[in-house]
């Protein structure tokens, strides 16, 4: 059932994002071709195409944010919820399918933005230069840090994904909590968001103030050699991932509880 939900979620969102991606790449291409042609008579079209490109770029990221909220609020808590919640599907699957698809589009938007920037700025031979640069960086890093470079890269990617999930889930939890109110649901959602983020911040401060952890970090980060320092960084990121993961589970649990036990569609 989860795969079917994912399929429909992708269909519902893809029809917005794929044309946006295409438009972005197209205007990146147009800007790229017009710009270098040269003297003044081409300046205006190049500027216009550049402006359109930037508008689409910004619009794309705004859209990922709007879609994240809309798909949850409209599809699950408004009229469309009458269909979604009468399908024989457990609510957590609805949350997971929306979360995954939202994450997918945010990551995809980032990648497409990067490609479009490359299209505009790339000159002949630059790509190989960049590749060589990356290879150099990798070799240097490997020499200094050894195999822990893999661990670090893995952690960074995982960290980005978990942070992304936590941002989306705190929004879901806020919308769901706003739904508990009979009136002013939007306002209540904003309030819930502020309360949830304050609580999370407080929890983070509390944890980092725990004597053991503070002592531990001081010890490692002040170590003289690079290797020990990188170990400390790896450990710090790991703690961060675990902490963010716990927050994610809490937001998820709140959202799921409300959808399961406190659903009240008007």
């Amino acid at each position: 059932m989860l795969s079917k939900l994912l399929k429909y979620e992708l269909k519902a969102t893809g029809r917005i994002f794929l044309p946006l991606f295409l438009a972005l790449l197209m205007f990146a291409g147009i800007t790229r071709f017009i710009a270098p042609i040269g003297p003044e008579e081409w300046a205006a079209p190049a500027t216009i195409s550049m402006i359109i490109y930037i508008i689409i770029l910004v619009g794309m990221f705004v859209m990922t944010f709007i879609m994240m909220i809309q798909r949850f609020k409209n599809n699950l808590l408004s009229d469309e919820g009458y269909l979604m919640h009468t399908l024989p599907v457990k609510p957590w699957k609805h949350i997971v399918s929306k979360l995954f698809v939202s994450m997918l589009w945010i990551v995809a938007s980032g990648i497409v933005a990067l490609i479009s920037i490359l299209i505009i700025t790339l000159e002949k031979g630059r790509l190989t230069k960049i590749a060589v640069g990356f290879a150099d960086l990798y070799h240097q890093a490997f020499e200094q840090l050894g195999a822990s470079i893999y661990l670090l890269s893995f952690e960074i990617i995982l960290g980005i994904l978990v942070s992304l999930a936590s941002v989306i889930l705190i929004v879901y939890a806020s919308i769901a909590m706003g739904h508990l109110f009979n009136q002013h649901k939007m306002l209540a959602s904003f309030g819930a968001f502020i309360i949830l983020s304050t609580l999370s911040q407080l929890l983070f401060t509390l944890i980092s103030m725990t004597p053991g952890i503070a002592y531990f970090f001081n010890l490692h980060i002040s170590s003289p050699n690079d290797f020990a320092a990188i170990q400390a960084v790896i450990l710090a990121i790991a703690y961060g991932i675990i902490f963010t993961g716990i927050l994610c589970s809490a937001y998820f649990a709140v959202t799921n509880f409300i959808l399961c036990k406190r659903l009240n569609l008007e």
């Binding site: 009229d79 469309e80 919820g81 009458y82 269909l83 009468t86 399908l87 024989p88 599907v89 457990k90």
Partner: peptide
């Protein structure tokens, strides 16, 4: 879930 498998529901609004 089990009751939703056997209930066919027509809401009063377009969903």
């Amino acid at each position: 879930i089990e009751t939703k498998k056997i209930v066919s529901y027509l809401p009063e609004k377009t969903y």
